[in-house]
């Protein structure tokens, strides 16, 4: 009788540590680079613009979250009518998504700001209305363009998410006697958002990266502040490097926050 041969137990490959020798060398090189940047470049302008930069970051974040939230609320009906809606409505939603996703955001932004802005100015009715003080400013146009763009991209995601909710769950809800509205509110929407969450995170990061465009229509976000610094100090690289660092941190924070959110939602392991 021979011993039954057993396969050697599976050993997981060693996780790559942060402190492998080559990584320590790379980090050292990186540290030297950072030191050179700090030491040899001009940063004396930084204290003068500290508060303005903080306001700029705030403006960027306000723009990001307000457009993402309102855009998402628009995206839900856009996605829904494409799955269940009557033909004309779903056709309309599809056309909207195709047009917005098929043209550059910068063009849409300029069309709203220069085009619509100049059109509004021609009508005395609009000029005398209570809205005019707002319509004369730039941010409503920036907000609208970013919101519409987010709604179109997210509407496409939500369409897939609504279509992907298993039919059995919806049928079970119907069998419980839920009304259509209750079914949507309790089952369909939460499950669709759950499915769309990873994509939603990615889209929000993309939205953050789209916000500096509004600086081209004179909304002063963090990019606008940095452009101002560049005009004032005639420096090319320093402000841009700082700007890249700021966006890097914002992206990192956003991803980290979404990961916390995702971990809070219980998911049954596949």
């Amino acid at each position: 009788m021979s011993e039954p041969t057993t396969l050697p137990a599976y050993t997981a490959p060693r996780p790559r540590s942060l402190f492998e020798p080559h990584r320590i060398v790379l980090m050292a090189i990186f540290a030297v680079l950072v030191f050179c940047v700090v030491w040899f470049m001009r940063w004396d302008w930084l204290p003068n613009y500290g508060t303005r930069l903080a306001y700029g970051v705030g403006e960027t974040l306000i723009m990001l979250f307000s457009t993402a939230i309102v855009g998402f609320m628009l995206a839900v009906p856009i996605g829904l009518v494409q799955v269940t809606g009557p033909r004309p409505l779903s056709w309309l939603a599809l056309t909207f998504c195709t047009i917005i996703r098929g043209t550059p955001l910068l063009l849409q932004l300029w069309m709203l700001y220069y085009g619509l802005g100049s059109l509004f100015a021609q009508y005395p009715e609009i000029r005398q209305s209570f809205l005019w003080p707002y319509l004369r400013q730039a941010w409503p146009y920036g907000f609208t363009a970013l919101m519409i763009s987010f709604a179109a991209y997210e509407g496409e995601v939500m369409r897939g998410a609504f279509a992907g909710v298993p039919r059995g769950e919806l049928e079970a809800a119907e069998a419980f006697g839920m009304s259509r509205f209750k079914l949507f509110w309790r089952i369909w929407l939460p499950r669709a958002i759950h499915r769309a969450l990873p994509t939603l995170n990615g889209e929000t990061v993309l939205q953050l990266k789209a916000t500096p465009l509004i600086a081209t229509i004179t909304v002063v976000d963090v990019y606008g502040v940095i452009s101002r610094v560049r005009q004032d100090t005639f420096l090319t690289y320093e402000p841009l490097l700082l700007l890249a660092l700021i966006y890097l941190c914002l992206t990192g924070l956003l991803i980290w926050g979404f990961r916390l959110l995702e971990n809070r939602i219980p998911t049954r392991g596949a």
């Binding site: 047009i99 996703r101 063009l107 849409q108 069309m111 220069y114 085009g115 100049s118 059109l119």
Partner: peptide, 30 residues
């Protein structure tokens, strides 16, 4: 996009040019 903005700015026909450029981009992506 930049050329469109220049054309729109110098003729003041903003909507016309931006819509035309939008149509070109859309045709391109389609």
């Amino acid at each position: 996009t930049l050329v469109t903005r220049q054309a729109a700015g110098s003729t003041k026909a903003y909507m016309l040019f931006f819509l035309a450029a939008g149509a070109i981009y859309l045709a391109w992506t389609l």
